Amino acid sequence: MAFREIVGGWWKRGRRKAVAADASMTPLAGMAEVAPSSPASPPRDWAAPLLRLAGLDAGSCLSPEDSGPVIAAARDALARFADDPRRLPRRPQLLPELLGALNDDDASGRDLGGIIARDPALAAHLLKLANSTLYRRDTAAVESLDRAVALVGVDGLRHLVAVALMQPVMRVEGGVFGRLPDLVWDHTQRSALIAARLAGPAGREEVLAARLLALLQGLGAIVVVQALRDATAGLAARVPDTAMTAHLLQRWSPRLACAVAREWGLSERLMQALDAQTDDERTAMGPLARALALAAPEASDAMEAPAVAAAA
């Protein structure tokens, strides 16, 4: 799959250089030519572990009967979000240019740093990410963009830039849901890394597509949390039944992500991979969709494992 197929309408507006048509349109060996997967059971749940980590246990939740109207109100709000582009998160301004540079073989780390430096907030956030436990490689603080680029390399920067661009869109107050928004953000970063690893054998462009899928699904999850927060306003710090909440989060996150991808002009193939996350039949899940379906629960397991070990 060529990069223009990932970013859809962005290609003509944002590419940095002319690319020969034959080369850019040639599908990657491996991922693009792999047949869709055989029928399989739905992917494992990734939402319930996040609710457990947020401390939303049965004792602090409404009964299933009382939760019904709350879940229905949140679902109605999400349906309105999906149908009205004005309600969806806006595309980060630098995303097309940065994605084009990240996919350009001739773009160096210094080139990427130069683009990032044009946005002070983005530059500060990138340094914060480079100093996080996920990316920092030694005890010395990373204090310059040049050093951050040198430490993570261009491939690492691809992930950092994508994450840094998405996070401002994904911020939301926790409210009665406590740590859940922060946990969703942590889960999104981990899912993007795992999905990229799973897509790695198929080539760089599939890695980029897998990262985008995970980030978009995380963005959809934040919209779901926002809708739940609004629906629970005035309920005296009570939240809906955890099983019902987890189901809503699991089902609607990729749906909202698909709506965002459509509004942002991303490719039909990405939207199909997101749509496949809600298909209970699992009759035709392609490799890209499967990478996301495997990455999300693996990220949840990795987050929950320390808590389980501490409680043992």
Results as ranks from 00 to 15, higher is better:
Glu5Met: 06
Val7Cys: 08
Gly8Ala: 05
Gly9His: 12
Arg16Trp: 10
Ala18Ile: 10
Ala18Trp: 08
Ala20Asn: 11
Ala20Phe: 09
Asp22Glu: 12
Met25Pro: 00
Pro27Gln: 04
Met31Ser: 13
Met31Val: 11
Val34Cys: 13
Ala35Arg: 10
Ala35Asn: 12
Pro36Arg: 00
Ser38Thr: 09
Pro39Gln: 05
Ser41Arg: 15
Ser41Thr: 15
Pro43Glu: 12
Pro43Ser: 13
Arg44Lys: 14
Trp46Asn: 04
Arg52Cys: 10
Ala54Tyr: 06
Gly55Leu: 06
Ala58Gln: 08
Gly59Asp: 12
Pro64Lys: 02
Val70Thr: 03
Ala72Trp: 08
Ala72Ser: 12
Arg75Thr: 15
Asp76Tyr: 11
Arg80Cys: 10
Arg80Asn: 12
Phe81Ala: 12
Pro85Phe: 00
Arg87Cys: 13
Leu98Tyr: 01
Gly100Arg: 01
Asp104Trp: 02
Asp104Cys: 07
Ala107Gln: 07
Gly109Ile: 06
Leu112Ala: 05
Gly113Val: 04
Ile115Tyr: 05
Arg118Pro: 14
Arg118Leu: 14
Arg118Gly: 15
Leu122Thr: 10
Ala124Met: 09
Leu129Ser: 02
Ala130Gln: 03
Thr133Pro: 01
Arg137Ile: 09
Thr139Leu: 15
Ala140Trp: 05
Gly153Ile: 12
Gly153Leu: 11
Gly156His: 08
Leu157Ala: 06
His159Cys: 08
Val161Glu: 05
Ala162Arg: 02
Met166Ala: 14
Pro168Gly: 15
Met170Glu: 15
Arg171Lys: 12
Arg171Phe: 09
Val176Met: 07
Arg179Thr: 07
Leu183Ser: 02
Trp185Thr: 14
Asp186Leu: 14
Asp186Cys: 14
Ile194Arg: 09
Arg197Thr: 15
Leu198Arg: 06
Ala199Gly: 05
Gly200His: 14
Pro201Asp: 13
Ala202Trp: 00
Ala209Leu: 02
Leu215Cys: 09
Gly218Pro: 06
Leu219Pro: 01
Gly220Arg: 00
Val225Ile: 13
Gln226Cys: 10
Ala227Leu: 00
Ala231Met: 03
Thr232Tyr: 03
Ala233Arg: 13
Val239Phe: 00
Thr245Met: 03
His247Met: 15
Pro254Ala: 08
Arg255Lys: 13
Ala261Thr: 05
Glu263Leu: 03
Trp264Cys: 03
Arg269Leu: 04
Ala273Trp: 03
Leu274Ala: 01
Thr278Arg: 10
Asp279Tyr: 11
Glu281Ser: 10
Pro287Met: 11
Ala291Asn: 09
Ala291Asp: 10
Ala295Gly: 05
Pro297Arg: 03
Pro297Ala: 07
Pro297Thr: 07
Asp301Arg: 14
Ala302Gln: 12
Met303Trp: 00
Pro306Asp: 05
Ala309His: 07
